[in-house]
């Protein structure tokens, strides 16, 4: 059974026109449709990667799953039960079992907390254990992420390097014993030479502790390295999903193809094909009902702007793209 299911999950942000427009001209509000009818199933022990450019809705999806933002439509189900109307003990349990790792290790740690206090914050806030046990678990957790507690517990975040801080961020999530971890670009602020170490830590922790994960990144090479399955998003819609290596090696959707084709290769001897798309990314303000990539797609025709294909994400081995023109594209 799946651990997490998103069913037609949507998040719209209302943009109210100015006072004069609203009152005199009776202009209605417009809506930024940051996430639109997103279906997603995450299996036990699976790391699901979400790729996409800024504004594609990947971070909005994360904050909704982490319970920091309420969806405006659709449902989030955790182990089969909807989490949207959870209260009391059930909500506490969900808060504990679904944990988030943040992008910016310089911003996400409270500057006036010591490292031990940062890691102890979750268990203390939810009163998971008594003080001594929290301390013990915090120390053990710090050791596990490669920060010996006798050396790091009493320090402040500003005394640590970026990599060490991101380890603290990981420790503070994992000390809660989560079953589901949401990692929002945890490497993007770190130097290249230490990224691999944090990535290894994440993968080691996942194989030891068997949590499921959603790993969000704009870096497809990293996602290919960490994720079991990969979903590509564009302006709030899912474009393609499938086993990660499969999606990167044989992308189906025109957008995925462009995205992968645009990634520079660290080898001066290789030449890449030029991505065949036009225009710039826009904001999803009152978008038409169809595929949002259609205006930039070289293969699009009038029908693309009218209907959008929702993906069936339950089967972890299925590689599918939300495109009606796949036959045409593959033939041409």
């Amino acid at each position: 059974m799946a651990i997490l299911e998103l069913e037609r999950l949507s998040r719209h942000f209302e943009v109210r026109p100015g006072f004069v427009d609203r009152v005199v001209r009776r202009k209605p509000s417009s809506y930024i449709k940051a996430v639109e009818a997103l279906n997603l199933t995450v299996g036990h022990n699976e790391i699901l990667g979400i790729a996409g450019e800024s504004g594609c809705g990947k971070s909005t999806t994360c904050t909704m799953v982490a319970g920091l933002l309420a969806p405006t439509g659709g449902d989030i189900r955790y182990k089969g039960d909807s989490v949207l109307d959870l209260k009391g003990a059930g909500l506490m349990e969900y808060r504990r079992r679904v944990q988030m790792i943040f992008q910016d290790p310089y911003e996400s740690l409270n500057p006036r907390f010591r490292i031990s206090e940062i890691v102890a914050e979750g268990p203390t806030a939810l009163s998971l254990w008594d003080g001594d046990e929290i301390d013990e678990r915090v120390n053990a957790m710090l050791n596990a992420v490669g920060l010996p507690h006798h050396k790091y517990a009493d320090r402040y975040p500003h005394e640590l390097s970026g990599g060490e801080r991101q380890r603290v961020g990981i420790a503070s999530a994992l000390v809660m014993e989560p079953e589901m971890v949401i990692a929002d670009e945890p490497l993007s602020m770190l130097d290249v030479s230490i990224r691999a170490g944090i990535l290894d830590l994440f993968k080691d922790m996942q194989s030891q502790r068997h949590f499921s994960a959603i790993y969000v990144s704009h870096d497809l090479s990293i996602l290919g390295n960490v994720a079991d399955r990969l979903m590509v998003m564009y302006l709030g819609q899912a474009m393609e999903i499938g086993p990660a290596l499969e999606v990167i090696r044989n992308p189906k959707h025109p957008y995925t193809r462009a995205l992968i084709g645009a990634v520079p290769v660290p080898d001066p001897r290789t030449r890449r094909a030029i991505p065949n798309i036009r225009g710039d990314i826009s904001k999803p303000i009152d978008p038409p009902p169809g595929c949002r990539f259609a205006p930039r797609c070289p293969h699009a025709d009038a029908s693309c702007g009218e209907r959008f294909m929702e993906l069936d994400t339950a089967d972890p081995h299925l590689h599918q793209a939300a495109c009606h023109k796949l036959d045409v594209i593959n033939d041409g």
Binding site: S193, R195, D200, I222, N225
Partner: peptide, 20 residues
């Protein structure tokens, strides 16, 4: 070390190694 640590889209399965 940098070459080890840097991921490549052409070689996604590669094990990345960081510089301690």
């Amino acid at each position: 070390g940098l070459e080890n640590a840097f991921p490549s889209i052409r070689n996604v399965g590669k094990d990345l190694i960081s510089i301690p």
